[in-house]
Amino acid sequence: MKNSKPPIVKVLSFNIAHGLGMDGIMNLERTATIIEDSCASIIGLQEVDRFFGERSQFMDQVEWLGERLGMYTAYGANIDHAAEQAGQPNCQYGNAILSKYPITYSKNHHMTPVQQWYGNDEQRGVLEAVIEVDDIAISVYNAHLSLKDEELKLSVKEILALTAGSKFPCIVLGDFNAPPFYAPIREMNRYFTDAFLKMKQGDAYTYPSPYSYKTSDVDLKPVTRIDYIFFGPEMEVVQTATISTDVSDHLPIVADLVLARTKQIQPSKQKTSKAKA
């Protein structure tokens, strides 16, 4: 007999800056330790490299983290170009989802770019995954969005269209590159609940990570909140926190979400993410 008690999942969002710490050292083990110590069971990571280059030692960071943490993984490359040497894997950079629960489907969605005179022209994306938590299927959308206002507005519209098409309760998380008072974030709040606002932690700043420079009197402290965990009406939040660390330029955030036991449609098996046990 299955447990009728609604499950609680700990969700984490973390822009890992390909493992580059505030001290200028790339060390993915430090990133893995932060994730492990958080006890999160569903993780959305942004700025993840796969064979990207020397900056991340040509690692497949997705596979490495999946094996290190014993989790299922899904990946969406937003930058994807051929390696300089023939026969080598493509250089990729994008978003990853890690889960202690099976990932039964995943798809990467490129956001529509908007050409403007300011800001970079980096391709942005949202990685979608369907995850089975006990007998409940949920859709998780992991976003890394643009710094450009018009593109950010369009991306949020596209995210809302994606979530509206989901058959399952939705979690939207990631690096939105915008503070809570920006119009696109207010638009997200029309359809989803901001976990930190719900817990009256709207001042839980995530960028930049705290760091003291030994060669000067400069101390960095978080001054804005641009990383979010949103959830749909089928869920409730019972706890939120930021994790203080300098292993990236963003602070990771976590939320404990209660998943209501509603009538479920079995998730599609048409595409299965790779898994690491």
Rank of each mutant, 00 (worst) to 15 (best):
M1T: 06
S4L: 11
K5I: 07
I8Q: 13
V9D: 04
S13Y: 05
L20E: 13
M22W: 04
G24R: 07
G24C: 14
M26Q: 09
N27D: 15
L28I: 00
T33Q: 02
A40F: 10
A40D: 10
I42R: 00
L45H: 02
Q46P: 00
R50C: 00
R50M: 01
F51P: 04
F51V: 07
F52R: 02
F58C: 07
F58D: 01
Q61I: 03
V62R: 00
E63A: 03
W64I: 00
L69K: 02
G70V: 04
A77N: 07
A86Y: 05
Q88R: 01
P89W: 03
Y93Q: 05
K100L: 10
K100R: 15
T104G: 10
Y105G: 13
Y105E: 08
S106Q: 10
K107Y: 03
K107S: 10
T112P: 12
T112V: 03
V114K: 09
V114L: 03
V114T: 07
Q116I: 11
Q116F: 02
E122C: 08
Q123H: 11
G125A: 14
L127P: 05
E128Q: 13
V130A: 00
D134H: 12
D134G: 10
D135Q: 07
A137I: 12
I138T: 08
Y141K: 09
H144L: 05
L145M: 15
L145S: 15
L145G: 15
S146M: 08
L147W: 02
L147N: 02
L154D: 03
K157Q: 05
T163A: 13
T163G: 08
F168Q: 14
F168E: 15
P169M: 11
P169D: 09
L173N: 07
L173G: 06
G174M: 07
G174N: 11
N177H: 07
P180Q: 12
P180N: 13
A183F: 12
P184Q: 14
M188W: 06
F192M: 12
F192I: 12
F192K: 06
F192N: 08
T193H: 11
D194W: 02
A195E: 13
F196A: 11
M199K: 13
D203R: 15
Y205A: 04
Y205W: 08
T206V: 09
T206R: 01
P208N: 09
K214P: 00
V218K: 15
V218M: 14
K221T: 14
I229Y: 10
M235Q: 11
M235V: 11
Q239Y: 13
A241I: 01
T242S: 13
I253N: 02
A260I: 09
K263Q: 14
I265W: 06
I265C: 11
Q266S: 08
K269R: 09
Q270W: 03
K271F: 05
